[in-house]
Simulated assay, not measured.
Amino acid sequence: MNAVEASERLIQLIRENEDIANHADGCSAGEVAAAERDLGATLPPSYRLLIEEFGTWDIAGEEFLGIYQTPAMGQKLLGSVSETLDARNQYGMPSGLIVTMFDGMGGLVVLDASQEDQDGEYPVLVWNPGATDREDLERLGNDFGSFALSTCRQAVTRWRESS
């Protein structure tokens, strides 16, 4: 299964588990283009698909930042965009890294746009504030779609088994 197929399965998983999932209404092509301009990088296809579908989402306690706007913040792109720009400005996170979620231990789960594969996908890494060498970053997955699907499947299974 490739990364985009994994994202398609994740969309299905979220739709089948609406009782333990939350999501927004998705992002328009214009919002995605604005996010890419702000980030200075193209979103990989598997992440883009989920952003277009949900904008931002969580399921069974796993929260993904995504991209969204609120009336209070106006046109400002929140989620991955604002967290990425904040991490670059405040903590010196290298350009080309895109924040997708928090790891719960002080690190940021990021996509590394400097390591694009033949399908336009980026590896999923953990960046900790202060880290400067990308070679030292923990690798969580080869692409976002597969990483997110695996993470969410495990969370749903844990949730359902504990209920």
Rank of each mutant, 00 (worst) to 15 (best):
D103L: 06
L111G: 01
G26W: 03
T70D: 04
S114I: 01
L85T: 09
G106C: 06
S150R: 11
E8I: 06
G74I: 12
I51Y: 02
D19F: 04
L78P: 01
G107T: 02
S46L: 03
R37F: 06
V81Q: 07
G96E: 11
Q115N: 09
H23P: 08
G130I: 04
E135G: 15
D143Q: 05
D117F: 11
V124R: 10
G96K: 08
L85W: 10
I51R: 01
S163R: 15
P71A: 13
V110I: 11
G30H: 12
R88Q: 15
A113M: 09
K76Y: 12
E52F: 08
R139W: 00
E16P: 05
I20H: 08
A35S: 13
E16F: 00
R153E: 15
P123M: 09
V126K: 02
P45A: 02
Q69Y: 08
L97Y: 09
D112T: 04
L85N: 10
D119T: 01
E36T: 06
F64S: 13
Y47L: 14
L78D: 02
G104Y: 10
K76V: 15
A34G: 09
R9N: 14
G130P: 10
A33L: 14
M93K: 08
F144R: 04
C27I: 07
D136W: 00
G130T: 07
V126M: 05
G104T: 02
S80V: 02
E5A: 13
G107Y: 01
R139T: 14
Q154P: 00
W57V: 01
D143W: 11
L49Q: 09
T151P: 00
G141A: 05
Y122V: 03
D117A: 03
A72T: 11
E31A: 10
E53T: 15
I51F: 03
V110N: 04
G130Q: 08
R88S: 05
T151L: 09
A21K: 13
R153D: 02
I11N: 01
A34K: 12
L13M: 08
D38E: 15
N17V: 02
R139M: 13
L49F: 04
G30R: 09
A33E: 15
L39M: 07
D136M: 06
G74K: 12
L39T: 03
P123L: 08
G66C: 11
T42Q: 14
S28N: 06
D117K: 06
P94V: 12
D19W: 03
D103K: 07
F144L: 07
G104W: 11
L13H: 05
A33N: 09
D117V: 04
W57N: 06
A155N: 03
L85Y: 05
G107R: 03
G141T: 03
P71R: 11
G61C: 06
V156A: 03
E63Y: 12
G61N: 10
A6K: 12
A148W: 10
V109G: 04
L125C: 11
G92Y: 01
M101C: 10
V156F: 03
L137V: 00
V4N: 04
I98G: 07
L111Q: 15
L137A: 01
V156Q: 08
D133E: 14
V32Y: 08
L97M: 13
L78R: 11
G145M: 01
